[in-house]
Design a protein around this nucleic acid. Structure first.
Lengths: 259, 259
DNA sequence: TTGATAAATTGTACCGGTACAATTATAATG
DNA sequence: CATTATAATTGTACCGGTACAATTTATCAA
């Protein structure tokens, strides 16, 4: 089976028109976004105090629980923290240049400032291997897209990526989509939502082929990172394996205590 | 300043009596815990359906919003996922033997089954270095405990740990506490709650000293992991640097899409 | 000035309600 | 029997309320 010989679909053009704030944003989402902008625009720093709940309620003219919901969201995102009896405070502690693992949207937020490019090494529809079958919980009959890419940051090799997408969920991919951001396409082109992901990683040494692609030496260290992405209904649709250049990759992760 | 020469404090004996379910558990916490036990005891698997919200409400005799809160907690912990219009489902996907990064309690949950031991390499009260001052946001006058440990898993070296605790928050540490679980002591001995943590990591090569401690070779790969732990009120109290043995360390991380 | 005590502030737990959106089951239709 | 329309199921958004716990501020005593 060859690439793109069976599916007809409306073409996808990224960034069509202005950045519409999604079709239907919920109240608490809008409030959270607005507050985040406020924090950024006013360059607030760790520990700075935000208006108290009651004032926010008056300002946005919603009920207390809607404000609470917005604040929960911001808290989970690591943008604020709340202290009972005291107030709401800004929590910004990210070091620059670190890949943020908290939001499973590829590299969207952590590396905004960076020049990310991709070289497509392979793109085809294949039958799943045992490994892919296990991780995506599918049978041998379920076809998947196999995507191999070499990703660059500022022109330097960042990682080797080998991804598998269930064709029933992602029916069409082409060279252009894959050379840009696949997740942007999933989100905006297919209007696909992501539910959650499982992520595994460990360290190992590069083999000869990997080393050559990353312009490193055989035996050099590497971070080996696996992800399984699920739709909101729990269905796994993407299994990805990444091998990171140890000289370029540094990661950030914010963890909240689950009360 | 020498160790333990200035603070008198009630002695700490771990596991005093039976595992009391904390002094005052909230309704939604108890429900979440009960449901988690139910899932484990009945060996439910990924995708298995749980009772619908209304039935849970009747069973636990609480309001809908309390059930919702409990389910939110379980969702954040990666134990369930909810699908609107469909139901509540079990989400268990952890590979065995991986360190779980989601819950910031040291190695508590991810490595339950494993034999974790520690060799204390150093324990003293010191003035903070520039690096510690920056990460804990303290001045040179604020004393900190410095703890150096070599941690073993099944008797094999897992990581080198160098930790700094603000003495104003953790006024007392001794060899025995430090040779066991520091976080258990913080939680149960000091009744300290953790708010959130910032975590950073990257890959690098071992230097000579590190290699010797980990029984590896100079230049071998290693995961270099830094954490800054904060109290619920936002105060940073612990800065830790870990160097992981690449042969033993593998990590798991569950990420939810923040709607 | 210090330190305890009381009061005000402020976020969280919990209730119970309406409306609605996404899914699934059922009925109708060809 | 497959397809489509309809209805029932089920979780989520949002409201507005009471009670309470943790923190901060104000007050008072020594």
């Amino acid at each position: 089976m060859r690439l793109g010989d069976d599916i007809i679909q409306d073409e996808y053009t990224p960034d069509e028109g202005t950045l519409q704030e999604d079709e239907k944003m919920l109240k608490y989402q809008k409030i959270a976004e607005d507050m985040e902008h406020y924090i950024i625009d006013n360059a607030l720093r760790q520990g700075d105090k935000l208006p108290v709940l009651e004032d926010l309620r008056k300002k946005y003219e919603v009920s207390k629980s809607t404000i609470t919901k917005a604040l929960e969201l911001l808290e989970m995102k690591g943008i604020i923290y709340q202290v009972r009896g005291s107030g709401i405070f800004v929590r910004r502690h990210r070091r620059k240049g670190y890949i943020n693992l908290d939001e499973n949207q590829g590299f969207r937020s952590g590396l905004d400032d960076f020049q990310l490019t991709s070289e497509v090494l392979g793109l085809e529809v294949v039958a799943p291997s045992e490994e892919v079958m296990a991780n995506l919980s599918i049978s041998a009959e379920e076809p998947v897209y196999q995507v191999k890419r070499l990703r660059f940051i500022h022109g330097r090799p960042l990682c080797i990526e080998e991804s598998y997408y269930k064709k029933s969920v992602v029916p069409f991919l082409n060279e252009q989509i894959v050379s840009e951001s696949i997740f942007t396409y999933l989100r905006e082109g297919l209007r696909l939502k992501i539910g959650f992901s499982d992520n595994f990683f460990h360290i190992r040494k590069l083999d000869e082929d990997e080393a050559e692609l990353l312009a490193l030496k055989t035996g050099d260290p590497a971070l080996y990172y696996e992800s399984v992405y699920h739709l909101p209904n729990g269905e796994a649709f993407d299994y990805s394996k990444l091998v990171y250049n140890y000289q370029e990759a540094q990661f950030y992760l914010q963890i909240n205590s689950l009360s």
